[in-house]
Design a protein around this nucleic acid. Structure first.
Lengths: 176, 176
DNA sequence: TACTGCGTTTAGTAATTACTAAACGTTCTA
DNA sequence: TAGAACGTTTAGTAATTACTAAACGCAGTA
């Protein structure tokens, strides 16, 4: 039983859409990336419209956030006013820029609010039941340490040149 | 300038709510966890209602998914029909169970659809332009390898006894 | 056996997010 | 300078997700 290449592409696109949704991104974003990823040549906005069925407007904005994440690149041909997009094929590169991107996000400010909580407690600037204060202090401190560890791990991943099995194996061996 | 403990708790809860939303969970879930995490004693459903302002129904379901993730634990006092909940304070433990939980999720089936795509291509069961077929094959293969690496890394994290700075430092040293 | 106190389920609503269609601004071309 | 070919923005709609309120079911108690 054989499949047409176009059909295969469609299935693949469907799969990436789901994965995209799973990570909290619009499923259209996954579809756009999939189409670009399987295209041997860079595609214009209108070609992406063709392939995905989304509107130009949606694609315009979503392709921009994909570019910010480093998952796609914008290019242009001389004597052609259209923008062309192609997928980054080094996923590790993308992860790096996504992680960096995260630093500037609201996530970080939320994490910072935890450390502010901690600072207030350490400065003795909080009034309330003595024993409970102590308990809360320890808990907030533990959470802070956890965030620091995550942060360290993130930096470890960023230091990797690539995410190949070689590196993963190395990590595994150390942790034995 | 001093702050009341109750106020501090509220701010902290607000922070965790944002973090929860960032990771794609309902913000109420973060609030529930925060309240439990800062409570020296296990709380009943109705006490959580008090602290969060959410309804019993919402909390009932959300506390259940928190429990499935291993972020909270349900307990009970003898001669008391109420259920009580307390937060897990070993975050690493929670991560482990979240990662395991993920295996059973729709995410995995989506990832599997990529490997099915690959298998079809390897079996020569796809018709279409020769050169394009070749290109698509290489791309899908690369994505598959990437997923495998991620999987390996996940397993590495699961192998860790804890996520303390000690371990993180170890990892960093290997990757130099 | 009825009543009370509990957690769960369900059906509906509010809020959020993803998307569409169309107006817009710019740049290039004739 | 008008028109065409773009990408972007905006205002509104559809779809999804988070939540509420109230009915329900199942103990345990009188």
């Amino acid at each position: 039983m054989t499949t047409k290449l176009t059909q295969l592409k469609q299935d693949f696109t469907e799969g990436l859409s789901q994965i995209s949704r799973f990570w909290g991104f619009p499923k259209g974003m996954g579809a756009i990336f999939a189409v670009l990823y399987l295209s041997p040549t860079p595609l214009s906005l209108d070609e992406i419209v063709q392939e995905t069925g989304l509107t130009k407007g949606a694609i315009s904005t979503e392709v921009r956030t994909l570019a910010r994440m480093g998952l796609v690149h914008r290019s242009s041909k001389l004597a052609d006013r259209k923008d062309y997009y192609e997928a980054e094929d080094d996923f590790y590169k993308s992860i790096r820029s996504i992680l960096k991107e995260r630093q500037n996000s609201e996530f970080d400010s939320a994490v910072r609010s935890v450390s502010e909580t901690l600072e207030k407690l350490e400065a003795g600037a909080v009034t309330g039941d003595e024993a409970e204060l102590d308990f809360v202090y320890k808990r907030v401190q533990a959470l802070q340490e956890f965030f620091n560890a995550i942060d360290g791990l993130t930096k470890a991943v960023i230091k990797l040149e690539s995410l190949g099995m070689t590196n993963v194996t190395k990590i595994l061996s150390v942790l034995k």
